[in-house]
Computed example of a mutant assay.
Amino acid sequence: MKQVICFGDSNTFGYIPGTGKRYPWGKRWTSILSEKLAGTDSRVVEEGLVGRTTIFEDPLRDGRCGVKLLPVILETHAPSDEDLVVIMLGTNDCKAIYGASPEVIAKGVGRLVRQVKAYSDKVKILIISPIHLGENVWKEGFDPEFDGNSVEISKKLAAEYRKISRAENTYFLDASEFAVPSKTDEEHMDEDNHSRLASAVYEKIRAIRCA
């Protein structure tokens, strides 16, 4: 792999829980992954954006709809058949305003996968289902854009993403098996969990290379 393009939301961006700031290089999972791949012929392309969704338009912030942005990003980085596109989205799709079921969110991921395939049917694709939302994320003092149902939806994404992965013949990883959200905001990973996820993705990439 020459490029590992990581297309995601705030947890790919490296949002520091409760601050609005970004983890520095070496702390966010994409940069840790890049360091783990040092010495190989690969480089990590960080394409994380706070608030990004799979298919939904955010009424409060522009430019968050994944299916509108991914084609531009693919043209920008021009992945070849030696490259890997990593898609880790869905957390923001769980917001109450979208009213989306796990099945609908997974279909959004499926659209993203097909956009990659339309660009090149040789590019490898890794779908990562996101970490679960914390039980208190919707309560006072946390994120009012979520509700109690959002938490349950987030827990059901992995099963639906697996179905999409099988149907589209992609690789799959469940981030919730390795990482959890910080208690600070019940939504974003702390440094330890960024490190855990980076290790899991690294091992998955090693397995893909050997496949």
Rank of each mutant, 00 (worst) to 15 (best):
T54P: 00
V50F: 09
Y119A: 07
D143T: 09
G99T: 05
R162E: 14
E82K: 11
C210E: 15
K155N: 02
G51T: 08
Y119R: 08
G108A: 00
K204W: 01
R114L: 11
L126C: 11
S165I: 04
L69N: 12
E57D: 15
I128T: 02
V67F: 07
C65I: 00
K122T: 11
I32A: 04
R162M: 15
D83P: 06
P102I: 07
K204Q: 12
K107D: 12
C94N: 10
T40Q: 03
V50E: 04
H188L: 06
Y15T: 15
G39M: 05
I16R: 05
K95D: 05
E191R: 09
S165M: 04
A38T: 11
N149L: 12
R22P: 04
Y98P: 14
L74S: 04
S176P: 09
D93Y: 08
E191Y: 11
A159T: 02
A159S: 14
P144A: 09
R196N: 13
E152K: 13
Y119L: 12
I205E: 05
Y171F: 15
S154Q: 05
D174S: 08
A175N: 07
L112M: 08
E103T: 09
Q115V: 03
K183F: 15
S31L: 00
M1I: 14
V151S: 06
Y161C: 15
I5A: 06
A179P: 00
G63Q: 10
R162C: 09
R22S: 03
S199W: 10
Q3M: 12
S101I: 05
L69M: 14
S31H: 01
T30H: 03
V113P: 00
V180W: 12
K21D: 10
I87F: 06
G39S: 12
A96H: 13
V137Y: 05
F146Q: 03
I5D: 13
G63F: 01
S31V: 00
Y23G: 01
S199F: 09
Y161D: 11
M1Y: 09
T12Q: 04
D192Q: 15
V86S: 05
S176M: 12
P144M: 04
R22N: 01
D9K: 11
K163V: 06
G18M: 00
G8S: 14
S31T: 14
A118T: 11
E75Y: 07
V116A: 07
S31W: 05
I16M: 14
S120I: 01
V45E: 04
A175D: 12
G18V: 01
D190S: 08
L133G: 04
S120M: 02
T12E: 10
F7C: 03
V116G: 09
A158I: 01
S34Y: 02
S150M: 01
Y98A: 06
A96L: 14
V50Y: 00
E75L: 13
R61E: 13
C6I: 07
K183I: 12
V113R: 06
I32E: 03
A167C: 08
G48F: 01
